[in-house]
Design a protein around this nucleic acid. Structure first.
Lengths: 294, 294
DNA sequence: TGAAAAATGTAATGAAAGTTTCAGAAACCA
DNA sequence: TGGTTTCTGAAACTTTCATTACATTTTTCA
């Protein structure tokens, strides 16, 4: 990722410790300074590092060569690499996906990309904002409107289908933007508008956000990592990574966030919602269109 | 100790997040690059940081000023200071970059479940079957029909929307099962039917599979780990894990498989499909309904 | 659609950083 | 102690970095 590719089995700190006995007076001084508050103490400039250890810069330069680095910059690169490995999220790690398949197979490449998207999205997602958005969606006093663009329409549909069961007052805004003013007309102040807007942001959806906000509608926006222009009208914005080894963007993480939101709202409304689910089940039984609900 | 004494209540990452909406395109790009793998990604030289984010060095210089630093060196000093504080306090460390979220939060529980689903699904998925299914979908001589159930309709819709761009002869079967006989009437021997059927398997969809198979239609089925009864009529069955800490099943991995299929088919038809994408783009431009396609 | 404003990158410049050389200081040994 | 070796840092030198000014591109809005 960072392009720092220095092969070594040993960490810098291990190397320092094992070399310690052979080090000279000034070098030992430096070594202790480095191990003290490792590895941050090694991340400044060579001058800072030297000053901190009260030695001269050439001493530092000689020392890093003894540690097997070509120079101070490589020494730092290795420190950063170690740091990266130490603090990387456990989600990043996975045992090989589809076994017996070359890593280069599209299945594995796609899974890798999805995992990276997932990790990065979650790392940047503010759980307080998530909880607040879920709270808002759980307020049955206010209607919820859901709208998506050309591609994200399917996600809007998915979200709508679930929310419709969980709580009353949920409407899916038609994807045809000509009809949007009519929908806005029916929105009340305090209503919630959930918008999906990814990549080639449509101008119309920005207009919709403007109109809705002007009516006092509170907006939850699900968009990509670059952010839709509609974000400035949104009270809550979820920025989701959508990169994929494909000509198309990936909606997988967006789907994850959608499903998590659904679960969170369902939890908040459980008593009421359980009753609704039960009634829906009965309705299905009556029409014989579906078997059991759960 | 380090001499880096810059007073600030806010961490750099908090500052970036709160500034995010007001940032410009290149700055957002840089912001994400910094948050990604924070704070290591910010510890290289300004040139490295700029290169990693694919922006110019002046953009980095301007950005750090927006973050309230006098210059890049001060920015780095603050990052190191944060790092020092975080490392000396393991609890803070966990909170800071292991996603900022307590493990028990629904976001993490859901992500864990999705990850487990992904692993198990891919481990059991036969890549040869996957490739064969993609080959079949890439045969332009045969029409492709797509159908989904009540919940999986959104997935069917998503698959359809993409396939429609990639190749000709793709139809979405209406979700209303009353109309299905009409659709079957229009299916030719050798046509492909992509079916989504998850959990409470609908009786009608089994009937549809029977009818279609009787007409010589080849069936690709995306179902859950227990398998839809329609599987016995399907030439290719994808069994996908759908468990989630929710009252609902998770469609995330199904979405992943769908997107991977889309990418695989697109690769196979690239020459032809590129042309179609181009033409679609022109059409969008003409109608002014959308901006750029890609 | 075109003018004005904003954003972004190229290129030049001065300021540091990192490296090397070398002379003096310290340790070692006879 | 004197000679030798090793260690250390001052200073010169080269390279890279961070910053600024400016030109180009992109966006915005009338």
């Amino acid at each position: 990722m960072t392009g720092d590719q220095i092969a070594s089995e040993q960490t810098i700190s291990e190397a320092i410790r094992s070399l310690m006995p052979t080090l000279t007076r000034a070098e030992k001084q430096l070594a202790h300074s480095l191990l003290d508050n490792y590895p941050v103490s090694g991340l400044g400039s060579i001058t800072t590092v030297a000053d901190n250890a009260k030695v001269s810069t050439p001493t530092v330069a000689r020392m890093v060569k003894k540690l097997g680095c070509s120079g101070f910059p490589e020494f730092q690169a290795r420190l950063r690499q170690e740091l990266e490995a130490a603090i990387s999220n456990p989600i990043a790690k996975h045992d090989r996906w589809a076994t017996d398949v070359p890593d280069a197979h599209i299945l594995n490449r796609f899974a890798d990309a999805v995992m990276a998207n997932m990790r990065q999205t979650l790392a940047q997602l503010d759980p307080k904002m998530f909880d607040a958005a879920a709270d808002l969606l759980a307020e049955e006093a206010h209607a919820v409107h859901v709208v998506g663009g050309r591609i994200s329409r399917a996600l809007a549909d998915y979200f709508f289908t679930h929310m419709q069961v969980i709580r009353p007052g949920v409407t899916l805004v038609a994807s045809n933007s000509n009809a949007w003013p009519h929908y806005v007309l029916n929105m009340q102040p305090g209503d919630v508008l959930v918008m999906f807007d990814v990549r080639r942001y449509e101008h119309d959806i920005l207009k919709l956000a403007e109109m809705a906000q002007a009516q006092g509608v509170r907006i939850i926006l699900l968009t990509d990592q670059w952010g839709s222009p509609a974000a400035r009208h949104a009270e809550f914005s979820f920025n989701i990574r959508i990169e994929a080894p494909s000509a198309w963007d990936s909606s997988v993480v967006t789907m994850t966030v959608v499903e998590t939101l659904i679960a969170a709202v369902q939890n908040r409304l459980w008593d009421d919602s359980r009753d609704r689910v039960k009634r829906l089940e009965d309705l299905f039984d009556q029409t014989k269109m579906f078997r059991k609900f759960v």
